[in-house]
Amino acid sequence: MTRAGLVLFCALLGLTACGHRPPDQVTDACLILEDNRSWWRALQRTEERWGIPPGVQLAILRRESSFNAHARPARNRLLGIIPTSRPSSAYGYAQALDQTWDWYREDTGRRGADRDDFSDAVDFVGWYSSKSRQLSGVQPHQARELYLTYHEGHGGYNRGSYRGRSWLINAADTVARDASRYQAQIDRCERRLNRRFWLL
């Protein structure tokens, strides 16, 4: 099947599995979403359900997995050579931990949700952000603070566990910049993204 045929097949069936390969570039939201229309629909659904802007959703996923559906933390190495266990159970687009993912599925009733499904991953990001608002007072557009709660957990964030960790502060600042840039890009191309694929 040609690339154009595969894109048409995926669009017709709405298969997020077809989008498992990470985007060729990760800096332009319009290009990312034009190549992955089901991702755009998933971002919109998450914004409608949880109130988190698409730019923030994309920025968090970029930081966590670079849009790799099967991302996992690198294995620890014994003596610097022999691979051993992984440092955590983080997996998928959102790098959600087993326990947190189970909490999400239980809390939302989405028991069949998968961490390597883009739609489920962004819904998880939206859900977690809503918990950040409830438990930590962080607003949906505050990408920097949302990332800190995402990384540290609500208890850790509320205790200020991120303070003094310059690498984490820098990461959160990067997420904020990415979110702002992505949202500005989406604002410019949203009308084009909302067109039916056969009208492009």
Rank of each mutant, 00 (worst) to 15 (best):
L135S: 04
A96L: 12
Y128N: 06
A29H: 02
N76Y: 15
T16P: 11
E64I: 00
V56G: 07
A29M: 05
G14T: 00
C18T: 06
S166A: 14
R37I: 11
A179H: 14
T16G: 13
Q99T: 05
A71Y: 11
S65Y: 00
W127K: 00
W40K: 01
L13Q: 13
D178K: 04
R196G: 13
S65C: 08
L168K: 04
R195D: 10
H154S: 12
P23W: 05
Y91Q: 02
L58A: 12
D24W: 09
G155T: 02
G5I: 12
G155M: 07
Y147A: 01
L33Q: 01
L148V: 04
R110F: 14
P73F: 04
H70E: 07
R181L: 08
R75S: 09
Q183P: 10
F118K: 04
Q142G: 01
A179E: 06
R111A: 07
R144K: 14
L146W: 00
D116K: 13
S65W: 03
T100A: 13
A121T: 08
L200G: 05
S66Q: 09
D178P: 04
V175Q: 06
L31I: 11
G51W: 09
I32L: 14
H70R: 12
Y147F: 05
A96F: 07
G51V: 10
A90Y: 07
A59H: 01
R72G: 11
A17P: 08
H70L: 11
L97S: 04
P73D: 13
A17N: 10
E64C: 04
A71N: 13
S88Q: 11
Q57T: 03
A4L: 01
D123A: 01
A176V: 03
E34H: 06
S85A: 13
S89H: 03
A184W: 06
D178C: 07
D102K: 03
L78T: 05
E152M: 14
L199C: 07
G126P: 04
P23H: 06
V138E: 00
G55K: 03
F67M: 01
V125E: 00
W50H: 15
A171Q: 12
A29R: 09
G155N: 08
R110G: 01
P87D: 11
G137Q: 05
Q185K: 07
D102A: 13
Q139V: 10
P83V: 04
R63W: 11
R45E: 08
W167K: 00
S89W: 14
A121Q: 03
A4W: 09
E48S: 08
Q183K: 09
R41Y: 10
A184M: 06
R191D: 08
V7E: 11
N36V: 02
R105M: 06
Y162D: 09
D35F: 03
L135H: 05
L200A: 11
S38Y: 11
Y150K: 12
Q99D: 08
I169Q: 00
L97K: 10
D178I: 07
Y157G: 04
Q142Y: 08
Q139E: 09
E34L: 05
W103S: 00
V56I: 14
D123W: 01
